[in-house]
Design a protein around this nucleic acid. Sequence first.
RNA 1: GGGCCUGUAGCUCAGUUGGUUAGAGCAUGCGCUUGAUAAGCGCAGGGUCGUUGGUUCGAGUCCAAUCAGGCCCA
Length: 1042
Amino acid sequence: MSKFRVINAHVDLPAMERSILEFWQENEIFSQSLKAREDAPTWTFFEGPPTANGAPGTHHIEARVFKDVFPRFHTMKGKYVGRKAGWDCHGLPVEIAVEKELGFNGKGDIEKYGIAAFNEMCRISVQRHVSAFTDMTHRMGFWVDFDDAYWTMSPEYIESVWWSLKEIWKKGLLVQDHRVAPYCPRCGTGLSDHELAQGYETVTDPSVYVRFPITSGPLAEINASLLVWTTTPWTLVSNTAIAVHPDVSYLVVEEMVEGEKEVLVIAEKLLGFLKGEVRVLQSLLGRELEFTKYRRPFEFVEIPDSHFVVLATYVTTEDGTGLVHQSPAFGADDLQVCRGYGLPVVNPIAPDGTFFSNLELIGGVFFKEADKALVKELKRVGALYKHLPYEHPYPHCWRCHTPLMYYAQPSWYIRTTSIKEKLLRENEKTEWHPETIKTGRFGDWLNNNIDWALSRSRYWGTPLPIWRCENEHEMCVASLKELSELSGSDVSNMDPHRPFVDDITWNCAQCDAQMVRVSEVIDCWYDSGAMPFAQWGYPHKEGSIAMFEAAYPADFIAEAIDQTRGWFYTLMTIGTLVFDESSYKSVLCLGHLLDKDGRKMSKHLGNTLEPIPLMEQHGADAVRWFMLAAGSPWSSRRVGHDALTEVVRKVLLTYWNTVSFHAMYANASNFDLSQSPHISQRPLMDRWIYSDLQELIIEVDTSLASFDSQRAGKALSKFIDDLSNWYVRRSRRRFWEGDAAALATLHDCLRTLTLLLAPLVPFISESVWQELIRPVDSLASLSVHLADFPIADAKWISRELSDQVALTRRIVELGRAARAESSVKIRQPLGRALIAAGGWSALPQEMKEQIAEELNVFTLEDIADADGKLVDISVKANFRTLGAKYGAEVQEVARSIASASSVDLVAKIRTEGAAISSLGDKSWRVDINDVIITETPREGWTVNSHAGESVALDLTLTSELIAAGTVREVIRSLQEARKNQGFDISDRIHVLWNSHSAYLEAIEDSIEHIANEVLALKIARSADLPLGENENGFNAVLSKAN
RNA sequence: GGGCCUGUAGCUCAGUUGGUUAGAGCAUGCGCUUGAUAAGCGCAGGGUCGUUGGUUCGAGUCCAAUCAGGCCCA
C-alpha cells in the first residue's frame, strides 16, 4: 500500500505549470501520446499556419486553445491525432516589415538592393518571429509538433504548390486577364478580394456634382447640361463617357438659382438634389439619351472618338444624379460598359499612383492628392454645380494604409466562378460552428463568388510557375524535376524563389522562341490554403501520398471569424479545384477578443495583453479556461485580469483544495484505496455524487464531441462546486473519522474529474494526477494525457437521488434565510421546524438529518401533519398545465381558483384527486398538478417560502436549547483555538478552561462530548483562568498532549 | 447599400418546447458559518430584459420594424 501524499492547499499555479512543462519534456509525453495511438483510427486536425511577420498576441492564444483541446480530447477517446505545426512565411506583410527595417520606400528600392538579398532578409525575418510563436505555444501547453513543421517557403512545399497550380492550369482555370482590380500604388501590386476586405477605412472625400454641357441634338440648342455626381474627382481627367440606365426616367429641367437660369438633365427620382426652383421641360427614358455628345471639363489627355452617353443597367437611382461618369481604366463596371461601345481605355496614371508628369496642372501628383486642384479647376471653368464633403468607406491597403485605386492591369486569375456550384455543394456538406456561418457569411460569399486574382507583382512569394514565349505559348511547371527536364540543366537543388527561378529559360517546343517565366509571385493565401497536401510535399516527396490520403479531408479546423474569406475559403477552394472535395469536414469559427471595455485589441490603442506575462500572472490553465468556457467561443468576448482571477478562484483553486482536502485526511487515516467498499454498499451521499459524476462524464463527452467547450466547462465547474461545497462539506465528519467509503468516493470523483479536465486545463490536471493518483495507483498511466477518457456507467445514475439532494439543498436555503430573518444565530439550536415541500415525505431519513444539522434544529415535521390551525393554505393557478388544458380560458380559471376557499379546494383535491372550480356559471375540473399549494405557518414562527416550498422555525428557546447552544459555542471556540495554535488535525490536546458561572453547569454537563469533539485527552476547569470577552466568558488554554 | 452576430443588474454572463417573484458570479453594505479552501451561506440595494409595434389567455423567449455596438462585404 502506498501512502497518500500531503498536498499543500496553497499553490503557485504558474510555478506548478513550469514544473509540469519540464515533466512533459523530460518524459516526452506528447510524442508518447501519439505513439500510444499509432495504430488507432485517425482524427484529423489541420493547423492553420500563423503568419510569422510579428510578435504573437493574446488573440493567438485563443485560436490555439481550441486547436489544442479537441485533439487532446479525441486522443483520450482513442484516436490518433497528428498535429503538424506550420508557418506561413511568404507575402506582402513580411516584405513590408523588411522594407521598414531597411528604410525602403517602394519597389524601386528593392530592385536596387537586389531581389536575392531582399528575399534573404525576408527569410531571416520569418525565422526570427517563429521563435516568439514557439515560446508562447509551448508556454500555453499547446501540443503541436514543431520539429516536423511545414514551412510554406521550403522548396518541397513550393513544389507541391506548383503541382497543384499545374492541375488547375491543365483544367484551363488558371488564366491571364486584363481586369480592373484594386491596386496599391505604394506596394505596386494588385490585391485579392480577401485582402481588400481587410482594408476599408472611413474617409471624407470631396463629392462633386459636375455639369457636362450637351453638344449635339435638340438639347444642345437649349444649352442643357448632363449633371453627374462623383466622389473621385481624379477620375474625371480620364472621363470617357457618361452612363445612364436605359429604363430609368430622366427629366430635362430649368432651374433658377439666384436669378441665374440653367438647364440640367437628371434622373426623375433624384430631383431633390437640385438646389433651386425647378421647372420640368421634358421627360425622357435613358435609352433616348444614348449617343448624346457632351463636352468634358478637363482636356488634359487625348481620348479619341469618345464623350457621349452610353447605356448601362448597373446605374442606380439610389444616390447621385442617375448619370454616372465613366473612366474605364479605374472601374470594373466602367471598363465592361465602355468596351461594349468600343471606347478606348486611357490611363493617365503611372503604376506608382501619380499622374504622368507631362500633364498640365496635375502632372506628377499622387492621384488622391490631385482632387483638391481638380475641384478648384472645375470651379474655375464653371463646371462645378455643387461640392460637398462626403464621408464613406474607401478601400485602403491593409498593410500600408495607402488609398487603393481600381486600376486596369494584367493579372493571373483562377476561374473560381466556374466551380461555384461545386463550392456550394462542398459548403453544404460542411459542419459549421456556429451554424449560421454556413448560409450566412460564408454561403453569401460563395454565392457572390468572383474569380481569384492570384498573382502579385512582388518578390517574396511562391513564384508563379508559368513560362511563356513571345508568341504566347504557355507552360506550367509542376516541380523542379520537370523544370530540369525542360531546361536541360539539373536545377533540382535550386532555391525555387526569385530571382534564381527567373533565370531558367528554354526554347519553346512550338516556335523555338525563348520561354521565360512570367514575373509574378502568387497570393500567399494560396500557400496556406494548399497546406492539406503541401505540408506533406505531395505528390513528389516519398511517402507523401500515403500521408495525404490518410489525412484528407480534415475532421476539424478552428480559426477566428476573419478567416471566412481567408483560410476557410482558400482551403475549400483549392481542395475543390484540385481534388473535387473540400479539405475539411467541420470548422469552428471563433469570435474576436476585445479588451475589458469592449474595444478591439490593437497595438495602436495600446490595449493589448501580452500573452506570456498574462500566463505568468494567472497561469496558462486560467487563460485556457477563460477562452474555452467563459462566454460563447463564437461571439466576441472581453478579456481582462478580473475575469481571469475569477477563473482561478472559482474553478481551479476550488478543485485544487478539494484535492488537498482529500490528501490530508487520506494521509491522516492511512487510507488504503484497495479497501474501498463497493459503490452499492456506500451511503446515500456517496451514491448521489457518484450518480452526478456519471452524468458529468456524459455531459462533458457529448459537449466536447460537438465542439461546445462552454457547455463542458459549465458542467465541470458546477460539479466542482457541488463536490466541494455540498458533498465534502456535508461529509466532513466522515472524513475526520477516516471513513473508507467517503475517502474512496471522493478519490473516485477526483480521479474522474481530473481526467475530464485534462483536455481543457492540462497543467493542473497533470499535477493532480502526479500528486494524488499515481502515488497510490500503480496502474495509473505515467501522465494523465496518456490515459483514456472516462466512460460513464449508466447503472449508477439516479435521477431520484439528484432530485432529492436538490430538494434538500433548497430546504436548507429556505431555512437559512428564515434563520437570518429571525436573528437567532445558527449556533443556537432550535426545537423544531415545519417543512412544506412536494417530495418531503419520500425524502430519505439521512437527508432529513442533514437538513436538521444544517439548520441546527432538533426535529423536523411535515407541515401537513401539523395542527391545522397552525397553517395558512394558499392556492395559485399553475398556468403551465392549465394553459395547455383550457387555452384562452386560463385567466378565468385562475380567477376562479383565487376566489375559492383554499382550504376546501385543497382538501377536496387531496382526498378525491380533483375538484371543480367555478366562476359565474362556468366551471372547470382542476387536479393536483393544476395548482400550486403554499402552506405557511402562522404566529410565533419565522417562515420563508419560495415556489410553494416553505420552512418555518419555532423560535421558542427552552433552557435545554440555550444550554446546547452554549456547548456548541464552546466547541467552536476550542476548534478555533486549535487552528490558531497551528495544531495538526489529528493532534490530541489538553485543555484548561473557565467561564462565567451561569454557564458552568451547561458546560460541565456536556464535558465529555466537548472533549470528544475537540480531541482533548484531558479537559479540566481552572477557576484561576481569566474570563474571556465573549458573552459566556469562556476562555481556555490548550496544549499538545505528549 | 447588403449579410451576419450581439444588446438581460454598476461589470461579466446564464436563461430549456412561450407559463406569471427573470437567475449566477464579480463589486457594495449588513449578518451568519468555518478542524480544507484564495472559501461557503443568508439578507439588502441594483432590471421598463435596447426601443416600438404585432401574434398569444400569457412574450426575455415567436414575428415585424427600428436604434446602438461589433464583424464581414460593396
